[in-house]
Design a binder for these strands. Sequence first.
DNA 1: GCCAACGTTGGC
DNA 2: GCCAACGTTGGC
Length: 156
Amino acid sequence: MTTRRRYWLMKSEPDAFSIDDLARVGTEPWTGVRNYQARNFMRNGMHVGDGVLFYHSNCTPPGIVGTATVATPAYPDPTQFDRKSHYFDPKATQEEPRWFNVDVAFERKLSRIIPLDEIREHRDELGEEFELIRRGSRLSVLPVSAAQWKLLLSLE
DNA sequence: GCCAACGTTGGC
DNA sequence: GCCAACGTTGGC
């Protein structure tokens, strides 16, 4: 049985890790996600080869800046066990890890940023339920439909 | 199980 | 830097 390729959007603050950083390193473990919904998307939804829209948040302007692919299945985020890490979680154990991450591989940098305010102009086509532009939504990992993927990249 | 307090996210 | 929106924690 084959599963159709899925699509995702992943946010990163460029001050911490930008699309240029990903281009440089090639592949990056997407550690540090500490939100259950985002974790569940990575752990339960992602498969190797899925498409990722790389989004810059908390910057001017915020928007989609590149594409990547899911490079590994989800595995326990090692930073949850590291006492020295900012992401250390004292309630996580090796037997029962709380947090998971995938590795993300650089695909390409867009020729221009697709800014959030421009994405909002297409709310009608993207749908009310699109998490990126839902009021108050702060999800850092979210699903994108094939139609949304196509539309968003057509804006480039 | 409720909910106040607190911490975080992320646009502006 | 501000702050609205949201998620989590922990006392009760």
